[in-house]
């Protein structure tokens, strides 16, 4: 028999984790929207966000606000280096998108090993941004960190939507993904846009990592599960849509939480992959595009 309080607690936890998956999914969308490339190293930006922030807190004794603000550009620079050293040379030589995607996967493994060698294999975490808590509602405990995740998640989705639809640079990034040659012919510096997309995507991953580390541990190897779940979130929401990625992440996080309560923790990933398979079978372009097209057919 499912315990109602335990279920509610898991759903709250799943909601928080789902938001993080959504934020990681947005990172996938940013690079995909600018280049058509799926960056499988997105998860390491999340890992680096937590690891760099932890290092700044523990080794330099910085307050969390300063450590977080410093971590974001550090990880963004790593994203820029990845674009310059790995992606751009392949792009310039006319490598296929498939080959570049495989290279991003290799880069993920490389960065993980470098992190292991430099920072060690010990899992680590740090305190929530706001001391105290959790907030008790009935028997359900809601950590203050969840509110930080919720607040930043909302801000980032709104900010990115405005960026991609209203700003000159955001539109140019979308133009590059739809037709890079046409974009260049109109004066858009396509290579610079690709670089910007990696910086932005890495920064978004770092923010997700900084936010999630107080409630989940971080370690050199957490990038892969975060990356996989973020990727699934982006696919469920319809690859390329920031709000779709967040909605996909929430759906995934909540379903995983339900699967843990109903079938045990071992079924968490089974639930994620089952959801992915069902969505891909029924709605190949993502759940929201699918529902929209069904709605259009009915009206």
């Amino acid at each position: 028999m499912i315990d109602a309080v335990q279920l509610a607690q898991n759903l709250v936890n799943g909601f928080g984790l789902g938001l993080i998956y959504g934020l990681i999914g947005i990172g996938f969308c940013v690079i995909y929207n600018a280049s058509g490339i799926v960056n499988f190293a997105q998860g390491v930006f999340v890992m680096l966000g937590g690891m760099v922030c932890h290092t700044l807190l523990s080794r330099l004794g910085l307050p969390i606000s300063a450590a977080a603000v410093l971590t974001i550009p550090v990880v963004a620079v790593i994203g820029i280096l990845m674009e310059i050293l790995i992606v751009r040379p392949m792009w310039n030589r006319g490598a296929s998108t498939f080959a570049i995607i495989l290279a991003t996967l290799a880069t993920q493994m490389l960065i993980e090993q470098i992190t292991l060698l430099t920072l060690g294999d010990q899992p680590r975490t740090y305190d929530s941004f706001t001391a105290g808590g959790p907030l008790k509602l009935g028997g359900v405990a809601i950590s203050y960190q969840l509110f930080w995740v919720l607040g930043f998640g909302t801000l980032m989705v709104a900010g990115l939507w405005l960026f991609f639809t209203r700003s000159r640079m955001g539109r140019a990034l979308r133009a590059c993904s739809q037709n890079a040659e046409a974009a260049a012919l109109l004066g858009i510096p396509v290579k610079r846009m690709l670089l910007a997309s990696f910086a932005l995507s890495a920064a978004l991953g770092a923010i997700a990592g900084i936010l999630v580390t107080p409630s989940q541990i971080t370690a050199y190897n957490v990038g892969t599960p975060y990356g996989v779940n973020g990727f699934i979130a982006a696919i469920i929401g319809g690859f390329g849509s920031a709000s779709g990625a967040v909605a996909g992440g929430l759906l995934l996080g909540i379903l995983q939480a339900f699967a843990i309560v109903a079938f045990g923790a071992g079924f968490k990933n089974v639930a994620a992959l089952t959801v992915l398979l069902i969505v891909l079978l029924v709605f190949p372009n993502g759940i929201f595009a699918g529902v929209k097209s069904l709605w259009a057919r009915r009206t």
Binding site: R171, A172, R174, A175, Q178, N179, A182, A183, I188
Partner: peptide
Amino acid sequence: GLFSQMTVRENLIL
């Protein structure tokens, strides 16, 4: 060479 997923206005502004 249009940006197919953008509106007429967005194409023109670009």
